[in-house]
């Protein structure tokens, strides 16, 4: 295929997605921008008020910490799961993939209430520990950062497993054999073949879960502690409770800006990596 026909093919395949995004996502997004600067008069006042407020800064810090930690945890755990899945014969893998997807299909609300039962002071884990050691154990596992991270990780793992599994399966098994024949030990094969070659999937997974966790709303409010408030609940507060849409939009725009700030370098790096 020459260059022009490649571009042509790209245009044809991408135009439905681009069109849908332009028609359905762009107008409301532009309206959010518009609302954030246009209140009684055209001004950036809402941004000033939002950025200087203590509430916003604290919430922003929590959001970044929670999104970062839960993404890393999910990435590590999800990678291990994907590695295991990639080694299974196809039928078994299909079955196990369904097991990974099962919690993904369950309502996040239901999962959060279930986690209260599992992680609570009188929950399954604490009563098991109490029974084993014969003393009353009440580890604080929920309504704090631990509960929040457990809930977030549970929610995010399937989103890591699927892209990573796709890149792992795309690796030609002849490369593994070649590496083994050349005398590489399993650890060496992992570091020089598996990891670099599954990097596209890993980065895609990381990007999507980090972006998703920046906007988390239900899990922090049901499983997190009093201090673990994230930006989305601040947006909900201004949007729904006090109907101050200008500030709600300003926070949303800042949140969206953050997504770009984190996503752009990752996307660029990934592109360079793919070219190399």
């Amino acid at each position: 295929m020459n260059r022009i026909s490649i571009i042509r093919a790209q245009a044809i395949f991408m135009s439905p997605a681009v069109l849908a995004a332009t028609l359905l996502i762009l107008p409301p997004l532009l309206y959010v921008f518009y609302t954030s600067v246009y209140g009684p008069a055209l001004s950036l006042a809402a941004y000033g008020q939002v950025l200087t407020s203590k509430l916003f800064r604290q919430t922003l810090t929590t959001t970044l910490v929670v999104a970062g930690l839960s993404s890393l945890l999910s990435l590590l755990l999800g990678f291990v799961v994907a590695l295991h899945l990639a080694r299974q014969p196809a039928r078994r893998r299909a079955f196990l993939t369904v097991l990974v997807l099962l919690p993904f299909w369950t309502s996040v609300l239901v999962k959060c209430f279930a986690f209260t039962v599992i992680l609570g002071r009188e929950g399954i884990i604490n009563s098991m520990l109490s029974w084993i050691f014969g003393i009353k154990i009440q580890l604080p596992l929920v309504l704090n950062m631990v509960g929040l991270l457990v809930g977030m990780t549970n929610f995010l793992i399937p989103l890591v497993v699927l892209p990573v599994l796709a890149s792992l399966l795309a690796i030609d098994s002849a490369i593994y054999r070649a590496a083994a024949i050349m005398g590489a030990k399993p650890a060496r094969i992992f570091w020089t073949v598996t990891l670099p070659m599954s990097l596209p999937g890993l980065l895609a997974g990381l990007l999507s879960i980090f972006v998703m966790s920046l906007g988390a709303f239900i899990v922090p409010s049901l499983l997190g502690g009093p201090q673990d408030q994230m930006l989305s609940s601040l947006v909900a507060f201004y949007n729904r409770e006090v109907l101050d849409w200008q500030k709600a939009s300003a926070i949303s725009v800042v949140l969206l800006g953050m997504v770009f700030i984190f996503a752009a370098p990752l996307a660029l790096w990934r592109r360079r990596k793919l070219k190399a």
Partner: peptide
């Protein structure tokens, strides 16, 4: 404040947290 385990947004939790002994 130190004794408030959760400032609940979902009404159902005002019951479920008592139920589970949390």
């Amino acid at each position: 404040k130190p004794s408030v385990a959760s400032w609940v947004e979902a009404t159902a939790q005002t019951i479920s947290l008592l139920q589970t002994g949390e």
